[in-house]
C-alpha cells in the first residue's frame, strides 16, 4: 500500500507577544515544530504501513509538506519518526496560499504520487482551520473521513474507522483511495529511533515546484486564493480579577455567593 502523510511546519509556540509601545506583533525567535496533530497523522501512517506490511502487503510512507525551503527540517524529523521518503513543495508561486490553494497544491502533488491512503492532522495549531484535509479529498475527487479516532479494519480496498464527533463516535466504512484526518486520541506517537535519526540525516529530499506538479500559477499562492487577509490585530488582553484566600469552608461560601450573583444557583 502506498501511504502519504501531509504535514505542516508551524511556529514552535503560538504565543505571540505584543510590543506595548507600538501595539504591534512580535514573533521573536523562529523555533519551529511539526504541527502536533500531524504527528498523530504521521504515527498512524507508519502504523498502517507496519500493519499492511505484516499482512503481506509491503507498504511505504511518503511525507509531504508545502512551505519555504526551511520546511525541510520538518521532513527530516518525519523521516526520523518512520517515514520512508519525503517531498518538499516549495515555490515562490505558492506563497500566500489560503486553504483553497494549499489543498490544491497538496492535491496536485498527491495526484502525481497516487497514494491509496493519505493522512492529515485534523487542523494546524497556527491556522486552526481544519479545512485543508477535507479540501484535498475534494480536489482529488476522493472519499474522505475527518476526525478519525481509530482505524478498526483496513485492507487494500476499504477501511472501517471510528470518528470522533460532538456527541459521541460514528463508525463508518470508506472505500480507498481516501483522505483521512485524525484526532489526538488515535495513537501515541513514538520517539525517533537511532536508526531513524541516521536515516533522517542521510535522506534525499525530493523538491517539487509548481511546474513539477502541473499547478498553474493562477491557481496558487496569493493569486489563486479566494480569501484575503485585510487586517491583523491583537485582541485585548484578559486581565485577572479578584483572588480569594482562606480556609476551605470560607472559600466554598464565597464561591457559592459568586455563583449566586451569576444566577447559576
Amino acid at each position: 500500500m502506498k501511504i502519504c502523510c501531509c504535514i505542516k511546519q508551524v511556529p514552535g509556540t503560538t504565543e505571540v507577544k505584543i510590543n506595548p509601545e507600538t501595539n504591534t506583533l512580535v514573533r521573536e525567535g523562529v523555533e519551529t515544530q511539526i504541527n502536533p496533530f500531524d504527528l498523530y497523522a504521521l504515527e498512524e501512517a507508519v502504523r498502517t504501513k507496519e500493519r499492511m506490511t505484516a499482512a503481506g502487503d509491503p507498504s511505504t510512507v511518503t511525507v509531504i509538506t508545502m512551505g519555504p525551503p526551511q520546511a525541510e527540517d520538518a521532513l527530516r524529523e518525519a523521516i526520523s519518526l518512520g517515514a520512508d521518503d519525503s517531498i518538499l513543495l516549495s515555490d515562490r508561486a505558492f506563497a500566500g496560499s489560503d486553504t483553497w490553494c494549499t489543498s490544491y497544491v497538496l492535491a496536485m502533488a498527491l495526484t502525481k504520487i497516487q497514494p491509496d491512503l493519505a493522512f492529515c492532522g485534523m487542523q494546524a495549531i497556527d491556522g486552526d482551520t481544519g479545512q485543508v484535509g477535507p479540501g484535498i479529498a475534494i480536489h482529488m475527487s476522493q472519499a474522505q473521513v475527518a476526525y478519525v479516532a481509530e482505524i478498526k479494519e483496513i485492507d487494500s480496498k476499504k477501511a472501517t474507522v471510528k470518528r470522533l464527533i460532538e456527541d459521541g463516535y460514528e463508525v463508518c466504512e470508506i472505500k480507498l483511495p481516501a483522505v483521512m484526518t485524525v484526532v489526538k486520541e488515535i495513537n501515541e506517537p513514538r520517539t525517533p529511533s537511532l536508526r531513524g535519526k541516521m536515516a533522517a540525516k542521510k535522506a534525499e529530499i525530493t523538491k517539487w515546484g509548481a511546474a513539477d506538479i502541473d499547478a498553474p500559477a493562477e491557481k496558487c499562492g496569493l493569486m489563486g486564493s479566494p480569501t484575503q487577509v485585510v487586517r491583523i490585530m491583537t485582541p485585548p488582553c484578559r486581565g485577572g480579577g479578584d483572588t480569594y484566600e482562606g480556609e476551605g469552608p470560607e472559600l466554598a461560601d464565597k464561591l457559592y455567593d459568586v455563583l449566586k450573583s451569576m444566577e447559576v444557583v
Binding site: T14, R231, I232, M233, T234, P235
Partner: peptide, 9 residues
Amino acid sequence: YGGNIMATI
C-alpha cells in the same frame, strides 16, 4: 495563532 491574533478576512 491560538487566539493570540485576530485576522479580518
